[in-house]
Computed example of a mutant assay.
Amino acid sequence: MQEQDQALLAALLQTAVDAIIVIDTRGIIQSVNPATTKLFAYTQADMIGENVKILMPSPYREEHDGYLRNYQNTGRAKIIGIGREVTGKRKDDTTFPMHLAVSEVPFGDKKLFAGIVRDISDLKSAQQQLSEVNDQLEQRVRDRTGELRATQAELLRAEKLATLGQVSGGIAHEIRNPLNAVRTSAYYLRNAKNLSLEKTREHLDRIDRQVSLIENVITALSDFVRLPEPRIARCNINDLVHQVLESVSVPENVKILNQVATEKPIAMVDPNQISIVLHNLIRNAGDAMPDGGTITLGSDVTREEIVIEVIDTGTGIKDEHLRRITEPLFSTKAQGMGLGLAVSAAILDKNQGHLEAQSQLGVGTTFAVHLPRKWRS
């Protein structure tokens, strides 16, 4: 049986893919298998009886004997029983990366060490190629990120210019008529002959009223720009809607139906700011029904949000106007500055919500106020 075991062991050593090197406590090579001769380009005769340092480049060869002495004196292993990556040296002095695993082998009254060596040149090459590909990819990502940022900056600039054009157009529309009235009265006061005190007072009052209108436009725009940050709190939507309905006013021929959910839905918003939004939407709905109609308040509760709907049976909004209703100073009303919906959209954005609108001419309009149930910090 022992002879069979020895024959099996010899066969394993002869056919092993990895190099196997056996040394004694002085580092002298006792045995090598054919894979070792192939890997290091030495013959068995070249290696057996030589110090294993011949297979190591500097500085490992100078340090090897110290490793063995340290282990024998202290019993503390630095490589024995632990696999590690080291560098090997062939007979022609070329080096290569290899993985080395060393184990202690009791052999009668001797102590031997067996090292199993695997050439990892292909693995290191693949890792290097992967690293280079990663570097190239990261550079491409950096380049593309720079391009995207430049494009984003250009789009932002274009968007700002477009917004500036819209706002300036709205300001011009709101201010031009009062300025024309002021100019007309000023011209009359400057050129009229035999001005009566009554006429003078009339035109001065007109100038004062028009200047007040212009001042109101500027104040409203300033308030819009300086919209404060929300004070987030748990808000019972039922209570909030009830409070809004108690304070909002609509024409006598307009009826309000409150069909908001009754399960006490809680949103994380600024109650004061959201009440402004609901006031604006309810008043707008009333203005959209000059001949009377019904405003219905409904709601829908999901895991992520609460949606409050303000539905009117008014004249509806044209598609081309519906796309612009939240633009500052855009309005379809004969009177009004067109800031109500712009302010509402801005408030909802600050409260991590948003506003949606659907409309059909001759049927009515639905505004949906989306409010978060959880605050995303």
Results as ranks from 00 to 15, higher is better:
12 L>Y: 14
14 Q>I: 08
17 V>C: 07
24 D>W: 03
28 I>M: 10
35 A>W: 06
37 T>Q: 07
40 F>E: 01
48 I>W: 08
54 I>D: 02
56 M>A: 00
58 S>V: 07
60 Y>M: 11
61 R>C: 09
61 R>T: 08
62 E>Q: 11
64 H>A: 03
66 G>Q: 11
67 Y>W: 09
72 Q>V: 10
74 T>K: 12
78 K>I: 12
79 I>S: 08
79 I>Y: 14
88 G>S: 09
88 G>I: 08
89 K>T: 01
90 R>M: 05
95 T>D: 06
98 M>I: 13
101 A>D: 14
101 A>G: 11
103 S>L: 14
104 E>F: 06
111 K>Q: 15
112 L>P: 09
118 R>M: 05
119 D>L: 04
119 D>Q: 06
122 D>R: 14
123 L>F: 14
124 K>F: 03
125 S>G: 14
129 Q>F: 10
129 Q>H: 12
135 D>K: 15
138 E>P: 07
138 E>I: 11
142 R>M: 13
143 D>H: 13
146 G>C: 05
149 R>I: 14
150 A>V: 11
151 T>K: 14
157 R>Y: 14
158 A>S: 10
159 E>Y: 15
160 K>V: 15
161 L>F: 11
168 S>V: 00
169 G>S: 01
170 G>S: 03
171 I>E: 00
172 A>S: 10
173 H>R: 11
173 H>P: 01
175 I>Q: 02
176 R>Y: 07
182 V>I: 15
186 A>T: 15
189 L>S: 01
189 L>T: 10
190 R>E: 15
193 K>W: 08
196 S>R: 08
197 L>N: 08
201 R>H: 14
206 R>H: 05
207 I>G: 00
208 D>T: 11
208 D>Y: 08
210 Q>G: 00
212 S>P: 03
214 I>E: 01
216 N>D: 13
217 V>N: 02
219 T>A: 12
221 L>W: 00
221 L>S: 00
222 S>G: 13
224 F>D: 03
224 F>H: 11
227 L>Q: 07
233 A>H: 06
233 A>C: 01
237 I>P: 00
238 N>C: 09
239 D>I: 07
240 L>R: 08
242 H>S: 12
243 Q>G: 07
246 E>C: 08
249 S>Q: 12
251 P>Y: 06
253 N>V: 05
260 V>L: 02
266 I>V: 12
267 A>L: 04
270 D>K: 02
270 D>Q: 04
273 Q>G: 03
276 I>V: 10
277 V>M: 04
281 L>C: 05
282 I>K: 03
285 A>D: 01
287 D>V: 10
288 A>Q: 10
290 P>V: 05
291 D>W: 05
294 T>W: 07
295 I>M: 07
297 L>V: 01
297 L>E: 05
297 L>Y: 05
300 D>C: 06
300 D>H: 15
302 T>K: 12
303 R>Y: 10
307 V>S: 00
307 V>I: 13
310 V>E: 00
311 I>L: 11
313 T>V: 01
317 I>F: 11
317 I>K: 04
318 K>P: 02
330 F>P: 00
330 F>R: 01
333 K>M: 09
336 G>W: 06
344 S>Q: 04
349 D>T: 12
352 Q>H: 10
352 Q>L: 09
361 L>S: 07
364 G>Q: 06
368 A>I: 01
372 P>T: 06
376 R>K: 15
376 R>M: 13
